[in-house]
Nucleic acid binder design. Structure first.
Lengths: 208, 208, 208, 208
DNA sequence: GATGAATGAGTCTTCATTCAT
DNA sequence: AATGAATGAAGACTCATTCAT
């Protein structure tokens, strides 16, 4: 804000530079193989500077993941009233919208998402607990909603919990496949296909 | 059987002891954090002994994963004629059987499965390529079968490839959730629910 | 010169300290038996510091030897016009001067010379190729000059190449004996005796 | 000697097989890099067998070198009356003969000679003392004889010790060059050239 | 705020040697 | 005599973290 701020980058900027560099490096090499020296040299700073902004290598990784997961959780929670739908057709619209916004959020920060998914599942185990809690909370949320739908007879599944697991797994790994492995994710199409597939799976009509 | 065989373990036994110990340690700590010294002390051997049987820490991990993946691939390939079914009801039976045997195989060697799933996805990247190739080959196999089913109008999906991704993701992550996170997998129930869910998703009937 | 310069050694100083310590340790123990920990503790530094300055134990040894051999080669090449002499008496003066300066150079950096001579010949073989190439180039240079002298009838030997080998061997091993084994080398005397001995050997007059 | 000796190799044979294999391996890799496992597998035996015949890796190397050096010393001592010659021309004949037989002995067991020369000079230092003692004893022997020749005025050199060093160095390194580096040593020619060169160097006639 | 030189704990891997069979 | 599986000490190298300037 003052006239100094033009020449010297302020703390916030330097911090963000380090974060950006770290996201890139973590995604490329993974947490374990990424060196602090990789991050600082990508950010154009000296080794020691890193520790003025972050307590440790684990600290910055945790912050990156935490921030991403929080953001994703918020989006998800905003959308979750989707299952309050009273008809299957209304549900169809809402579910597609929810999947669309979830994929959109993931895609917008695909680097962080990749770090979270890989480190969360990988045995490195840095965020195993954090990540597994997140997944559990999604599953629980979904289970509740599915239970409600099932009780109103608009959904036809045996066990809401199991079904919630199916859906979360399907969405998570499909995102991983298209966005992270294939580096190409057409949100509109995938969201449409995915909601159609899931909807049928939830359909109360019995199998032929 | 004779009194000699009790005292001295032969090379095969020692090798298997190391493998068993390694599977345990890798599952507990992950490849990166597992030390060779952890493995040998779990096997009750000296450091150097390890290198009489395996070229390196990476070597043993690769052997464990390779063996498991080969076994799983074989099981999967034996079952894959499932989609040659001519009716949806026959398909239902076959698909449940296939999922059942896949889950059974995974459960039978749950430790190795966990290592493969975690290391295959994790950025540590030791088996990323190997694992992603495996997933791709499953998806491709499934895509072919689904395409055939779709052409015979017994399946109703927009794009066989996308659908194959959905199914593989659903099965993989559900196994991960129940067997690895929850440590409890009731194969019969899950296979039934999973095949029902998938079958509906594949149903040629339009959404209501 | 100011009070700051006393406290903190700069990178060049630290590097030189490591080099000095390494020369000492390599000479005492030889390359194979010298441990990096010996070098750093002789230099009063921590293990890791070594790797800030040198890529590996082999790297530093190679640098020490390369630098020494380059310096020696330069001295030798500056002097080599010695054999352009037109008379045996002029040759005598020049040859003594050349031997003198060769011995002087070797003596001035006797530690590095010892490392080069021992490692160059020893089967450890770190510098075998490098060193044998050096010897070959000296022999070739000498051979050329002797050939010229022989063609002008101021030298009387059967084969210039063989004679060059004799001379290089004589000088090398005599230096080794006096400087490295005996730790005492009177350059003036040895250069005089050596040039006299060699000169007679080159004399065109037949044996009595 | 008995009828068993045909089928099973006796101790002496096995011992010799190990020695032969060791000479080969030591020459190829040098003492430090040669592994006991290299030696036994070259000899077609098991690891443990080695230690039935030799106390340690160093032990066998020492025996190989000791045996070679003893043999060489014996040859040399048989010939050393060469300098008792009363005339330069008689000396010429005798010196050539001595050099010839030294080179012949070295060449006959070139592998062992190479090991001794390389390990004796190399910093590995296994035989440094042993070898340097040997060299010193040759020099001393030569010095005595040269002294006698000088006192009888058939040799014209300033200092017998220095001259002895020159000669030993010349012979040793020339052998090294032709036999070990070039793998080709024409004993007759080299002995002739060498004795001519040395003889002139010893000639009492002053330089022109 | 920033720097970057220094630190040293942590681990894989090699290989001479032993010993039970 | 021979075997070969097992041992364990030794040492190079990495990299997160500290701190004096």
């Amino acid at each position: 804000m003052n006239d100094m701020s033009v020449t010297a980058p302020d703390k916030a900027t330097t911090r963000q530079n380090i974060l950006d560099a770290a996201v890139r490096i973590f995604r490329e090499k993974g947490f374990q193989k990424a060196r602090v020296s990789d991050i600082v040299s990508a950010a154009g700073l000296a080794q020691g500077t890193f520790y003025l902004y972050f307590r440790s290598k684990e600290d910055i990784a945790r912050q990156i993941c935490k921030k991403f997961m929080d953001r994703f959780t918020r989006i998800f929670e905003e959308d979750h009233e989707v299952f309050d739908s009273t008809s299957l057709s209304e549900l169809h619209v809402r579910i597609r919208k929810m999947i669309h916004s979830a994929l959109k959020t993931l895609k917008e920060d695909a680097n962080a998402a990749e770090i979270v998914l890989r480190e969360g599942i990988g045995q490195g185990g840095l965020f195993k607990e954090l990540y597994e809690d997140l997944i559990l909370s999604f599953i629980e949320l979904l289970r509740e909603k599915i239970s409600m739908g099932a009780s109103r007879n608009i959904l036809g599944i045996r066990d809401p919990h199991t079904t919630a697991v199916f859906i979360v797994g399907l969405v998570e790994r499909s995102f991983f496949f298209f966005m992270i492995m294939k580096k190409e994710l057409d949100i509109d199409t995938i969201a449409a296909d995915m909601s159609a597939f899931i909807l049928k799976g939830l359909d109360p009509a019995p199998l032929p």
